[in-house]
Write a protein that binds this DNA or RNA. Sequence first.
DNA 1: GTGAAAGCGCTAACAC
DNA 2: GTGTTAGCGCTTTCAC
Lengths: 344, 344
Amino acid sequence: MKDIANELGVSISTVSRALKDHYDISPELIVKVKELAQKWNYTPNPFAVGLLKQRTKTIGVLVPDLVTYFYSSIISGIESGARERGYHIIIKSSQESSQKAKESLQNLLDLRVDGLIVCLSQDAVDVSDFDLILASEIPLVFFDRVCRVDEFSSVVIDNVSAARELTVHLFENGYRRIAHIAGPENLNISRERIAGYLEGLEDCGLSFNPDYLVHCDLSIDQSALATDQLLSHPLPPDAVFGVNDTVIFSAMKVLKKKGLKVPCDVGLVGFTDEFHATVVEPNLTAIAHPTFEIGKEAVGLLLDEIQAETKHPARQVALKAKLIVRESSIRKRGGVSKVSFEDH
Amino acid sequence: MKDIANELGVSISTVSRALKDHYDISPELIVKVKELAQKWNYTPNPFAVGLLKQRTKTIGVLVPDLVTYFYSSIISGIESGARERGYHIIIKSSQESSQKAKESLQNLLDLRVDGLIVCLSQDAVDVSDFDLILASEIPLVFFDRVCRVDEFSSVVIDNVSAARELTVHLFENGYRRIAHIAGPENLNISRERIAGYLEGLEDCGLSFNPDYLVHCDLSIDQSALATDQLLSHPLPPDAVFGVNDTVIFSAMKVLKKKGLKVPCDVGLVGFTDEFHATVVEPNLTAIAHPTFEIGKEAVGLLLDEIQAETKHPARQVALKAKLIVRESSIRKRGGVSKVSFEDH
DNA sequence: GTGAAAGCGCTAACAC
DNA sequence: GTGTTAGCGCTTTCAC
C-alpha cells in the first residue's frame, strides 16, 4: 500500500480510500490504484485490520472428533456456509476429552475468533467452562450435544420424537422386547433418546423393563459389553435400539458372532448418518441426521449473531430427523425367528 | 497489558519483558506481573504479534473434500501434530474443483498463514496456480495427490509397489483376468497405480489386455459405468483392482446387483482406508493407507520448513502402505465359480 | 533494572 | 478531493 502511494505520488490514506471506492476520490485515481494493487497482488493484511477492527472473519469449530462421518460431514456444512459468507474456520478436536476441549476453547479465544461452534465432548459434566465465553461475549452456537440452552443458541434434532418413532416402528414390525443401549447420562442426546424410548414403549402399551435399558460410554468395546449383557438376560430382547452409530455397529458384530440373525432373531435400529447405514449388511434402519444442514444451520445462526447490532437472545433450532426404514428392522415374510416365535 | 502496567506503576515494556521472563527484570516484579496477568486472564493479542512478527502460528489445509474418511482422518493427524507444536489449522475444501481450490489458496495466502498443506483436486491439470505460492515463499507440503515434487515437499505412499503387490496377490489367489479401474490420468495416484498394475501383470507373466484397463472420474456413477463396461466384455475379468474406495464400493454394488459373488466369481481389491473395508461384506482386501501418519508427517515436514533458518530443499516422504488381506480376494476352498472354472 | 519511542499495516476523524 | 495524524496491542532498540 505504501508502495502504491509512492508510485502514484499520493498519500497512503488516499490509497486506502480508493481501494474501498470511497465517494470523494477521483474516479481516475481509483482505477489507477486498483490496477496497481492488482498488478502487485496486494491484499490487506488481516492482522492490521484485525488489530484495528477487533474482528477476524474467522470462526472456531470444536468437535469431539474429526474422523467420524457425523462430525466431518457437519464440518463440511460449516465450511460451506462460512465460505459463502466470507468467513474462515479454525478447527480443533477435543478427542472426546473435556480437558482438551477446555484447552482448545482457550486457544480459540486467544486467537480472537469472531465466534464459536461447539459440540460437547462425551465426558462434559462441568459446563462452567463456558462461563468464560459468556464473559467474553463471543457468540457461541452448540450443536447436537448441547448445554445451557438458555444462554447459548443451539442446533439439534428432535431426539425425543425420533427415538419414539424408532421404538414404535420396532413394535409395528412385531418386536416386543425392545432394548435400548443408551449413552452417558450427562449428554442431552442420551437423556432425550431415553425419554423418547420410554414414550414409545408407552405408546405401544409395552411396559418398561429396566433390564432392557443399559448404558455405555459409546466406545466399541463398551457397546459390545452392553450387547452381551442384554443377550445374557434370561429373556433376551428381540430388538435393540442403539443411541448411535458405533453402538449399533458394535452390537451388530456381536450378534453375528453369536449366530443371531438380523432382523430375523433380533431387530436393530439406531441413530446414524447416511453413509455407513447402507454399507453394512443388512442395511440399517435408522434415524438419519441431516448432518450437512446441521452444519449450515449452526454457522447461519452464529453469523447472524456475529453480525447483529444488538445481542440476540439464544435461539434453539430443532431440525427434523427422518426415519429411514431399511432391512435391519423388517422381518422377512414367513421368516419368523425362534425368539419371536416363543414370544407370540 | 496497559492496565497491568498502570496497576503496578511500571511501563508497558517492562510488563512485556516480565511476561517473557526477560533476564534483567527483578524476579519479584515478574511474579507480580504474572499473577495479575493470570487474574485478568490476559492473553497476547495475536494480531498485534502477527503484525509485528509476520507470523501467525496458523497453517492452512486444503483438501478435495471434508467428508471422506480418507481426508478426515488425515486432517485428524494434521490437527494432532499441529496442536502438539502449538499451531492452529484453518481448513478449506476445494470440493474437487480446481477453481475453488484456487480461490481457497488465495484466501489462505491473504490470511497470511505460516504454511500450507494441500491435496490436489481431481481436475487439477494446470498446476501453475502454485507459482503464486513459490513466489510468496510460504512453505507448502503436498500429500497423496501431488505435483511439482522438485519444488514442494510431499508425503505420499509408494503407490507403484503397492499396486504391484495387489496385482500379484490376485494372481496368487487364482485370478487370471485382472482388470483395473483407474482414476483421472492427470493425478499421480492414478498414473502410479496403473504403473504398478502393469508391473504386477508382468511379474506374473500375464499379458496386458487394454480392454481390462478403464478410466473413471472417481464418482460413484462413473465407477458403476466402468464396472458395467468391464462386465460386458465377451471374456469379462475375474478380478477387479480399483484405484480407490469409491470405485470399489460402487463396483461391489454393481456385482451384487448382477448376482455375481465376491470373491467367488470376481475378486475385488482396492486402495482404501481402514474403516469402510471391514464394514462391507465381504470384507475388502485392500492397501490400507496410514492416514493419521500421513497427516502427522505432512505437518511435521511443514513445521520443519517453517521453523528452518534457511530454505529447505523439497523433501519427499513415501510412507509404507500395507496390504491387508481380507475376504474379497480369497476364494473359499472348493468354491470355484463358474467364471474361473471356464478359465482353468 | 526500567522507561521512552518507533513501528508492524491499516483506518478514520479531522484538517485543509 | 486529498493529506495528516492518532492509534489498534505489542516488541525491541536505545537510552539512562
